[in-house]
Simulated scan of single mutants.
Amino acid sequence: MLHDCNLKLPQGKKLALVGSSGAGKSTIIELISRFYDVQEGEVLIGGKNVREIQYEALLENISIVFQKAFLTRESVLENIRMGTEATLEQVRAAARAAQIDDFILSLPEGYDTKVGSFGSRFSGGEKQRIAIARAILKNAPILILDEATSAADPENQVEIDRAIANLCHGKTVIIIAHRLSAVGMCDQVAVVENRTISCSGTHEEMLAASTYYKKAWDDYEAARRIEYRQEGGTDHAN
């Protein structure tokens, strides 16, 4: 259960939630999405308590892309359209923005290919980009990402990064940052520790204010340097 959480995110800004597993990051986005309600305090969107917003209207204004992409057994077209009346061209435009249109066209029946019979051949990154295309088509003003790049296979990483950039453009975004690489696209960072938000601010402010964040960032930078040296060694060997 969360306690003593205070957080404000201006419209159009991007926030990264950082913290160890079980600290409460997912609980925060579940409260914003009203998967369940707070027992004390309030969650406001546009100055209005989410309890006063019709649930259907709330869901229309929020898109969520989970770390593990959810696809139905229906066609790729229906997985992106997901109950809307979008035309094929509108779906394709979203798929192009999600960097997945060319892949879909290469499938045996293109957009009519059934996920149920072909889904086992999709990589994790391909499934993720289909889910991103769905969110791009929905075009909700509030976007929540259970960081969609964290489980990406390397060959899909660049495409997913481009798809995420297209998806986030002009939206209010909250990212559960499993990888600190996501911090680079965010205006604010909030550290979640012991079921509360211990501090929040810009990346630079957090480096100075949060022991947890400073160590996590130092570890991330060290890992990047090791990866860089390994890639340089490979290049030299070739």
Results as ranks from 00 to 15, higher is better:
Asp219Asn: 12
Ser20Gln: 14
Ala94His: 07
Glu231Thr: 03
Leu2Ser: 03
Ile104Ser: 02
Leu207Tyr: 05
Ser106Leu: 11
Asp153Leu: 08
Asp37Met: 02
Ala57Tyr: 06
Val183Asn: 13
Glu74Asp: 13
Glu227Asn: 04
Asp218Thr: 08
Ile132Cys: 04
Leu107Glu: 06
Gly83Gln: 06
Thr27Leu: 12
Gly12Lys: 11
Asp101Tyr: 10
Ala23Thr: 09
Trp217Phe: 13
Asp146Trp: 05
Thr84Ser: 14
Phe118Arg: 00
Gln11Val: 03
Ser20Pro: 10
Glu204Ser: 10
Asn156Lys: 06
Ile174Asp: 12
Ser198Thr: 14
His178Val: 07
Asp37Trp: 00
Thr72Ser: 13
Lys14Tyr: 11
Ile29Glu: 08
Ile64Cys: 14
Arg225Gly: 01
Asp219Ser: 04
Asn6Cys: 09
Val50Ser: 00
Tyr212Trp: 12
Tyr228Trp: 06
Tyr212Val: 07
Asn6Arg: 02
Val50Ile: 15
Gln230Cys: 06
Leu44Ser: 06
Met1Glu: 14
Ser117Arg: 03
Ala209Asn: 09
Cys199Ser: 05
Arg162Tyr: 10
Asp101Ser: 11
Val115Thr: 15
Gly125Asp: 03
Leu17Gly: 00
Ile130Pro: 00
Glu74Phe: 12
Ser123Cys: 15
Ile32Phe: 11
Ile130Cys: 02
Thr172Met: 08
Tyr111Phe: 08
Ala165Gly: 01
Gly232Phe: 01
Ile28Met: 05
Asp187Arg: 06
Glu85Ile: 12
Lys8Met: 15
Glu89Val: 04
Arg224Met: 03
Leu2Arg: 09
Ser123Asn: 08
Tyr36Thr: 07
Glu193Phe: 11
Asp37Gln: 02
Gly233Asp: 08
Arg51Ser: 04
Lys214Phe: 04
Ile164Phe: 04
Val65Asn: 05
Ser210Pro: 00
Asp218Met: 12
Arg121Lys: 11
Glu60Arg: 10
Val38Phe: 03
Gly41Met: 10
Ile144Met: 14
Ser63Cys: 13
Leu2Glu: 00
Ile164Val: 15
Glu193Leu: 05
Gly46Asn: 07
Gly24Thr: 15
Thr87Gly: 04
Glu74Ser: 06
His203Trp: 02
Tyr111Gln: 13
Ala190Arg: 07
Val50Lys: 12
Ala86Val: 12
Thr196Met: 02
Glu109Cys: 08
Ser123Tyr: 07
Thr84Tyr: 05
Leu105Tyr: 10
Asp101His: 05
Leu71Val: 11
